[in-house]
């Protein structure tokens, strides 16, 4: 089961490490990472496999919320099907 983690906010040191840390703790496998900085805004997208995740999806979202608050960025985790539905015919 694939999900997409998006991180948007002001660039600071250690964002990638923080998000990757949450993934490692919850047994979420990171498959792909892209990141860019557009006019000072940090945008990172991670495609992850949550099949073997040790906690349920709502709890995973809460972990990312807490990590986001700590780093001052907005982190969302969303099932991949949403993007497929909206952007592919």
């Amino acid at each position: 089961m694939k999900a997409v983690v998006t991180v948007v906010g002001r660039d600071t040191v250690g964002i990638l490490a923080k998000v990757a840390g949450v993934c490692a703790e919850t047994n979420v496998n990171v498959e792909e990472v892209t990141q860019s900085i557009l006019s000072g805004t940090f945008a990172m997208i991670m495609v992850v496999d949550v099949t073997a995740c040790t906690i349920d999806f709502a709890e995973l979202q809460q972990c990312f919320n807490a990590a986001g608050e700590e780093k001052g960025v907005d982190i969302k985790v969303t099932r991949q099907e949403l993007y497929d539905a909206m952007h592919h015919i």
């Binding site: 997409v4 948007v8 892209t34 997208i45 909206m86 952007h87």
Partner: peptide
């Protein structure tokens, strides 16, 4: 294949 632009567009539509 997921496109970064599409993903950010969706996030933006929902958040803002």
């Amino acid at each position: 294949m997921l496109d970064t632009k599409d993903i950010l567009e969706t996030i933006h539509m929902i958040s803002d």
